[in-house]
Design a binder for these strands. Sequence first.
DNA 1: CGGGGGGTTGATCTCCTTCAATCAACGTGG
DNA 2: CCACGTTGATTGAAGGAGATCAACCCCCCG
Lengths: 248, 248
Amino acid sequence: MMNLGSMTVHQDCDDCPIRHRAVCARCEADELQLLEEIKYYRRFEAGSHVIWSGDKMDFVGSVVSGIATLTQTMEDGRTQMVGLLLPSDFVGRPGREGSAYDVVATTDLVMCCFRKKPFERMMETTPAIAQRLLQMTLDELDAAREWMLVLGRKTAREKIASLLSIIARRDASLNFNSSDGGLTFDLPLTREAMADYLGLTLETVSRQISALKKDGVIVLEGKRHVIVPDMARLMEEAGDDSDGGLLA
Amino acid sequence: MMNLGSMTVHQDCDDCPIRHRAVCARCEADELQLLEEIKYYRRFEAGSHVIWSGDKMDFVGSVVSGIATLTQTMEDGRTQMVGLLLPSDFVGRPGREGSAYDVVATTDLVMCCFRKKPFERMMETTPAIAQRLLQMTLDELDAAREWMLVLGRKTAREKIASLLSIIARRDASLNFNSSDGGLTFDLPLTREAMADYLGLTLETVSRQISALKKDGVIVLEGKRHVIVPDMARLMEEAGDDSDGGLLA
DNA sequence: CGGGGGGTTGATCTCCTTCAATCAACGTGG
DNA sequence: CCACGTTGATTGAAGGAGATCAACCCCCCG
């Protein structure tokens, strides 16, 4: 898949689907007005790079729709995904020149971007933005630490179950897709991307998904559509017993 | 070792060793004054818990001296260290009741604590604190993500080398202990704690340290004192080639 | 029809875990 | 001062979970 560049689109903050969850969530009308002046939309097609590791970043922004990944790569080519960016997630780091990671669109992606310098200035004058960003960063830090447990201590089977339960829970919180008690969702990642997220090979990912299917923990329709008949069972397989930890 | 509780000590912010690096780094004299009113010192002895996972936290604070670890534990006892807390590091999460992790003092520890509610109120009125906390949290997030690469993709030998080079670099930035070109430091962790940090067993840690010693990458004096004759070599072993990534 | 991307499955290999013995340093009490 | 237990660390032998290498399938698309 080639990067064909980006298209520009426009939208009003009022009908923005991530208005209440993104960095701008706590902004008042007048503050939004200021943001509108420094914002612009960009569209990326599936497979294209939003940012290259090491590159200078002249913007920060929010994922409006679609999914992107945050990955690190070693010289010899080994890669580790360090974050999954979903709608409302923030991209970029105020106060730093370059990006430490590759950001890649895994689906078609729309981002709401802010020019970096003006945004940094706004952060100093608009507590609502800085506070929201702090909150979001603390959440991401918790997520990263939870993932460290997954990477460091869980078995391949538990890793897969952990990933599935995270995606399932996220989808459940957005939509109401609990048809007849069983959760349902589409995997937004290829087997290879899952492997990069879980610190495994794609073969192991495939085998463990097959094993979970054989054991009735999940039901597959095609390669990507997953049905979870018993969420508690899945979380048990993930090693996260029952409660699953309180979400923000 | 038993937890004998904590002793209280006092200190003035002016001669505080972490004054310029902790959450309070950007505070002006008047803001420090306010902090002084809600602050108190606590001393923990090596091996004792600062916080238990799940417990309600009525304070947040900074590590003044000593070292603590942040660990997560699964029901079956598997543990993963998710953070190493050094002087100036922040403990606790504003806006959340309980702690998600165990915080354990690995050496004797002194903490500068702030009562949580007043601190949260101050965060809303004092941009200097919120801004500094955001900066520190973003740094921690980067560190956590770097560690995800270590946990997910590196070999045991590379993991050990990564840990050693991180500790070496940190020590180098604090002290000037580059006697005759070779860095020198003491390991602040037992083999078991290193294993918990690296997602390994303590036996593997021991074996890989021995191997690095045999290969001349490090020199050991006793079990804990490490000499690194060639830092570039160590970083090569860690898989972080040469530059080592830009620090903040 | 051919080709390529994504996915599954099999056979083998290897690195790390597991289980276990041993050792050095240290403290404690007889 | 020496036997004893404890704690941290090292080392050995055996086994296994996951990596690696490789074949093959499915499906879409040109």
